[in-house]
Design a protein around this nucleic acid. Sequence first.
DNA 1: AGCACGCCGACT
DNA 2: GTCGGCGTGCTC
Length: 825
Amino acid sequence: MERDTVAKIALHAATYTIDKPYDYLVPPELKDCLKPGMRVIVPFGAGNRRTEGIVLVLENGCSYDPKRKNVLTLLDEEPVLDTQALRLALWMRERYFCTVYDAARAMLPSGLYFSLQDKWSITHGVDREQAYEVAGRSESAKHLLELIYAWGGSAEVAQIKEAFGTRDPNPALKLLRERGILTLETSAERGIGDKTERVASLAISPEDAMALVSGKRRSAPLRYAVVELLCTVGSASAKEICYFTGASNATLRSLEKSGILSLEQREVFRRVTVDGVEPSEPPILNSEQQAAFEGLNALAAAEKPAVALLYGVTGSGKTQVYLRLIQAVLSRGHTAMLLVPEIVLTPQLLRIFTSCFGDDIAVLHSSLRAGERYDEWKRVRAGKARVVIGTRSAVFAPLKHLGLIILDEEQEYTYKSENVPKYHARDVAKFRCAQNDALLVLGSATPSVESMYYAKQGTYHLFTLKQRYNTRALPAVILADMKQELRAGNGTTLSGPLRQAIAKNLSAGEQSILFLNRRGASRMLSCGECGAVPTCPRCSVHLTYHSANGRLMCHYCGHSERVPETCPQCGGTLNFIGFGTQKVQEELQTAFPGVEVLRMDTDTISATHTHEKLLSRFEREKIPILVGTQMVAKGLDFPNVTLVGVVAADLSLYVDDYRAGERTFSLLTQVVGRAGRGEKNGRAIIQTYTPENDVIICAARQDYDTFYEQEINLRRMRGCPPFCDLFVLTASGRMESAVLKTCMRLRRSLEEWLSRPPLDQLNAQLLGPAPASVAKVNERYRYRLTLACRNTREVRAMVAYLLRCAQTDKENKGVSVSADVNPLD
DNA sequence: AGCACGCCGACT
DNA sequence: GTCGGCGTGCTC
């Protein structure tokens, strides 16, 4: 019996329902080079269409199986995922209801992605007559040959499909391939290549080299200069040598020919440099920080995994503790990772870490260019960078010997992915730490209710920093009751107390920041006469105005249209509406004529007017007032800002989400903390329509402990995390009635599972079907069921089973279903 | 999801 | 006879 080598492969073409490791035969020529974690091209399905896959396991000595197809092409020279990463992908499938391939792909930088292109061409050595003879009476085969010959003997699948229109080219393709007339080749193209440069170094000893050129110092000064340079620096890139000596490539080549120097290609890494950074000494910790550091360091050094919550009030110096901890981890030969919610909002942090670790850090986030991101990833994989700083997806960075992951501002929702796989970076980090006996540190000034609960339970270790490092008191906070303002005849967005405070700041020459509590500053148009708002034709959302292209756009499906001259409903005039930053800016300009007001939101931020440039202008030119959205809430540290105003604190409070209170508290706390960072004391004014609301009151007092106690009781009562997890099953499709029916069937199956042992013990709550928060996207209606219960393996297995059933069920034709745990909306 | 197979009626 | 429509079932 033959002894075959078989690769178990996770496939791109496999949907969630049929996702499993597929067995492929490894051909002899690939036996020596194929390893787990490498990507390959394989044929799949009855039509043998080509698809990408990632090798999970190799098994030697397998018996022959006629079902098996061959691995066709190897795409990687070395594995792109190691054993730990592959195990993580399997874990993610079980946890997030995605395919293994989806999970694996999320771990790789997009520069590493391949796009497959199928090309059909006339087989070598086949002439036209022969080909047409084989095509025989088949009209479509003859048509196909005509097309391919007209295109010069080969054509891409998309090309053929387009030319065939409604007709199916597949039977003709199959016929001509079986008779040897056509061949299918699949090429894989990668968007980003490896960048290299030519590097020159001396091929002989410096003394010999100098001896060879010094005689001709006059006649060949360039050769002399190049050798002299190389004697002092050892080796340098061809580009640099030419720049410094004035030599040309010809000079270098001739020196190479004489055997004096050698030229070779070396890989270079594209990097974004952080400028103006000087190496700095490790920070000196105060006694509180030192205690936290020692406790955390002991956990990091231990031989078992642990999770710690570092609860430090704004300005207590968590960053210094992170720095020392990372240094300690590195000194033990391990690597470390620092995750942040949004990197462009924390340029200071990047500067501090660069000054401390230099090239030992790699920065990974989405606003890098694909080449830069890919190269940073390669530096991490090669062990050239031992510290990773990045946003959500950086949690997958290929660090070896991981000793520490820090999630800064762990309560931030940006750690949860909205795309498939819908993972939470906190969970992935926890899993990776468990794999490596590493420490996970969750840092926050306003910890998520879940994390604090686990810390109080003793599941997490708790460390607290209570002192502000400049020992400055927290800003004095005033609540402004907007209902009263309205009654008093003030219909503007600026309350009396806020106006007075701004006026006071203007005369004192101090700066103020006004914060608009709203995600993204979307600008909508509305009709002045009938109140109609332009809506997306394909989705149930309002269109928002984009100043970049001057068009109305839909954030969900990408639809864009010209701004209509008049209201499409009644012909009235359209105006910008909403509680936008622009409106606040206008009102400020009316209230304080001649005073400059800087506005910062998605509308005023662009490639040239970056977030950072705007802020530095605000600081440098001492512009009196800054109005902005979320962007102004984080990490700003301007000594001359002594007043912070929250325009409408309630806006984030009354959304249909169990985290609304937590989010509002956290935001208000962060914003209030922006005032009085310098010598002078700060003030904050929170405008609200509900001054009696507990969350608002706690935020105004900066009283996290009371907020936590109230919130945890609410969560317990309502059955929200951490007591329960919310499994949201979403069905979507073009036919609203079919979508609803699918939901009802799903609900019945769920009810049945939940009524029988062992799941009847769970005390699970089932809600819905209800329309999703955006009920229609891209002409597809979306309804959802919510299952509130403990997130156990049994429940996940049931949900996975029901998803697979629903996807296979013929009754659910035209409807797709998916699941998400604790989604954002 | 995407493809083939098989069964049906329509057209030449 | 052949072509194209649609329902069904499988994917190493």
